[in-house]
Design a protein around this nucleic acid. Structure first.
Length: 496
RNA sequence: GGUCCUUUGGCCGAGUGGCUAGGCAAAGCUCUGCAAAAGCUUCUACAGCGGUUCGAAUCCGCUAGGGACCUCCA
């Protein structure tokens, strides 16, 4: 079946046809490592991790490039345009690179928690100053950029005469030219819509590099163009990022690369929607962020408890990546329970013994299960609809539990279908969705101790010595270990 | 102000012009020494008003609410 991707550029779903058959190149805008990641940041990384995993699952050889922005963009604070990274560094009395290192480490730690695969290449902006400078030189040569007082600006008006500037983000160039924004450097620009490729560094600016135009630092958008071109070529398959980056970041990327490379850089633009909180985008401008460390430890006023990275991952997967996802403590609580139920069923399924008969004797059940399994790929092929995949898997959960409790027999469906179920659950939950058991129960010594306690409890129960049996269960619970009696006398346990 | 998006049952969330996901919560039943699970059943929604259609939550228009971008932002 053919994979379809919603292309933000054309605003419709398109069949994914890679430039090089069997290969896929994907660039995703990575973090600016000037601060701690929050829940909102988690969405693109998990979304594109799943897209990466799914492309791999489809058999593509993927080069996944995700940059680290460590040079800092300037932001408007008061009137002074400043380098975000160096400003924070002054405040915290740290070297810029020390700050970058700290938050890079923290970011990588968070990605590990979320079980995100590492990108193939993780280039840094500061490591590609030369590439950015030569790209800017090329744009000047082509006549689409001009130098003013040591800064270089992109000539949007001229570009728009020949190319559809604004198409990706749905802007009208005339409106952009009229925008009455009062930003730093505005008086240097020929038009208000122009954007900086290189900025002259004021004396107090720590991060600065020599360039043909004097000492300065790269503009907002050039790093992604330079690094994407270097590692994926002048034209590549997929470019991802948050919807809020469409304009001006991605729009400008298109313009820069188009002039420099004489072709539009990207075939499929993919944008994830925002995570909202009380209906509002989570973002530092709104002062409503929940940092990942706060989420994992439960130390935020809005949280009643800590939530595991897998709960967050599951929460995100339960909605479609192009919809806004509203955060609340209740929603996470629900996701936690849902994930637990799904994961237990998954583990039960994997341990289910195969019946001797290859095919079953309950055609209705068989065809229902088969149908649910067969749909999974078509859901993912339809613009990565993880929510629908999970819905189908949830429909199978009661069947699995019924097998466990002997309400249904695996003979009814046969070993062929059981194998298929095992394979699909593993493929979708683990390989594609990147979920994993979040408990620390993978400890052989603990398992041995638990087996001993279970034996004792079974013995005391059989002697109707409920005082002993309850003591074992209750005291384990105090330690955060939940012991459950299963049907048929077996017992299972898990760490809360 | 401009551009665009959105509004689904107690909550979160899929969604296609007709067959009305899924999760959480709630209620009842079954199982059970108790507990927890688990199983079964129940709860039928699409902001409002018009229109198109044999038929619309799904298409169109208007009204109302919410939001995003236009400025660093995932």
């Amino acid at each position: 079946m053919a994979l379809q991707i919603f292309n933000s550029y054309s605003r419709q779903k398109e069949i994914f046809t890679p430039i090089t058959p069997g290969h896929a190149g994907m660039y995703v805008c990575g973090p600016t490592v000037s601060g701690e990641s929050h829940l909102g940041h988690a969405r693109p990384y998990i979304t594109f991790d799943v897209i990466y995993r799914y492309l791999l699952h489809k058999g593509f050889k993927v080069r996944y490039v995700r940059n680290i922005t460590d040079a800092g963009h300037f932001e408007e604070e008061g009137r002074e345009a400043e380098d975000k990274v160096s400003k924070k560094a002054l405040l915290e009395k740290l070297e810029p690179m020390e700050l970058v290192q700290k938050y890079s480490n923290l970011f990588h730690w968070a990605m590990l928690q979320f079980n995100c695969l590492e990108p193939s290449i993780e280039p840094t902006a500061t490591g590609h100053i030369i590439e950015q400078i030569s790209m800017i030189e090329k744009i000047i040569e082509e006549g689409y950029a001009y130098v003013v007082n040591g800064s270089v600006y992109f000539d949007v008006k001229k570009y728009a005469e020949k190319y559809p500037y604004g198409k990706l983000s749905g802007r009208v160039i005339e409106d952009l030219l009229e925008t009455t924004r009062n930003l730093d450097g505005q008086e240097e620009k020929r038009d208000k819509a122009d954007f900086a490729l290189w900025k002259k560094a004021p004396p107090e600016h720590i991060m600065r590099w020599k360039s043909p135009w004097g000492e300065g630092f790269p503009g907002w958008h050039i790093e992604c163009s330079a690094m994407a071109t270097k590692y994926l070529g002048t034209r590549f398959d997929i470019h991802g990022g948050g919807m809020d980056l469409q304009f001006p970041h991605h729009e400008s990327e298109i313009a820069q690369s188009t002039i420099c490379n004489h072709e539009a850089p990207v075939n499929y633009w993919v944008h994830n929607n925002m995570i909202t909180i009380d209906g509002r985008k989570m973002g530092k401008s709104y002062n409503n962020v929940i940092k990942l460390t706060e989420l994992f430890t439960g130390t935020h006023p809005l949280l009643t408890q800590a939530y595991s990275p897998m709960t967050v991952r599951f929460f995100i997967l339960q909605s479609h990546y192009r919809s806004t996802l509203d955060f609340s403590n209740d929603a996470l609580l629900a996701a936690e329970k849902a994930f637990k139920r799904m994961w237990e069923a998954h583990e039960t399924l994997q341990q289910l013994p195969l019946p001797p008969n290859e095919s079953g004797n309950d055609p209705a059940l068989e065809s229902k299960l088969n149908g649910l399994l067969m749909e999974l790929e078509s859901f993912m092929d339809d613009d990565f609809n993880s929510a629908k995949v999970l819905a189908n898997l949830f429909e199978i959960v009661p069947v699995i539990n019924s097998f466990k409790d002997k309400i249904l027999s695996t003979h009814d469906v046969g070993s062929g279908l059981i194998k298929l179920m095992k394979q699909h659950f593993k493929t979708y939950l683990e390989d594609i969705f990147g979920l994993k058991n979040s408990s620390e129960a993978d400890n052989d010594k603990l398992k041995a101790v638990m087996n001993l306690l279970i034996d004792i409890r079974k013995e005391s129960k059989s002697k109707k010595d409920f005082i002993t049996s309850d003591k074992i269960r209750n005291q384990l619970l105090e330690q955060g270990i939940v012991l459950k009696d299963e049907k048929g006398g077996d017992m299972s346990w898990y760490i809360q």
